[in-house]
Simulated assay, not measured.
Amino acid sequence: MKIKSLHHIAIIASDYERSKEFYTQVLGFEIMQEIYRAERDSYKLDLAINGQYLIELFSFPNPPARPSRPEATGLRHIAFAVDDIQEAVAYLATKHIVAEPIRIDEFTGKKFTFFSDPDDLPVEIYEG
């Protein structure tokens, strides 16, 4: 098998409208398409950055909670590249989102930090 790229990341939100606002209004994702699937009582929202499809955001009735973090089995975090991490952290603060202290990747020398989405999913921003 030859994988050529990442197609998308799927996220199930406990509060669809709150997560929709977070990913679009706070993180700046563009809505490509939003579909309501009546048979599943579920929304599916396709989100993009710079025209690149990256996230499917779902709503489902009463989804179970994920095991505690940070080191539970499964998806550990999602990460997004930024040009200026200080600027990104300052912007998040204006939205009342607290990022962890900025760290330096010991292998690349690049700056990074983490914050959480509305469902406490760890989100990393990485400078470079």
Rank of each mutant, 00 (worst) to 15 (best):
M1T: 08
M1L: 11
S5F: 13
L6S: 09
I9Y: 04
I9V: 09
A10Q: 08
I11T: 05
I11P: 00
I12E: 02
D15H: 13
Y16S: 05
E17N: 09
E17R: 14
R18Y: 04
S19H: 01
S19T: 04
K20W: 04
E21A: 10
F22V: 02
F22R: 00
F22G: 00
T24P: 02
Q25G: 03
Q25L: 09
V26F: 01
V26M: 03
L27N: 03
G28Y: 09
G28K: 10
F29Y: 04
I31Y: 02
M32A: 03
M32H: 02
E34Y: 05
E34L: 10
R37V: 13
R37W: 11
R37I: 15
A38N: 12
A38Y: 05
E39K: 14
S42P: 04
K44P: 01
D46Y: 14
A48M: 06
I49F: 15
G51F: 07
Q52M: 12
Q52N: 10
Y53F: 15
L54A: 11
I55G: 01
I55T: 04
E56N: 10
F58R: 06
S59K: 00
F60D: 04
F60M: 11
P64E: 11
P64C: 08
P64K: 15
R66V: 08
S68N: 13
S68G: 15
R69A: 11
E71Y: 15
T73I: 15
G74F: 06
L75D: 06
L75N: 12
I78N: 00
F80K: 00
F80W: 04
A81K: 14
D83P: 02
D83K: 14
Q86K: 15
Q86C: 12
V89I: 10
V89S: 00
Y91D: 07
L92R: 03
K95F: 07
H96F: 13
V98A: 13
V98Q: 15
P101D: 06
I102Q: 02
R103H: 12
E106Q: 15
E106A: 11
E106I: 10
T108C: 05
T108Q: 05
K110N: 15
K110G: 06
K111C: 07
F112V: 00
T113W: 00
S116M: 10
S116H: 10
D119M: 09
V123G: 01
E124A: 02
I125W: 00
I125S: 00
E127N: 11
G128W: 06
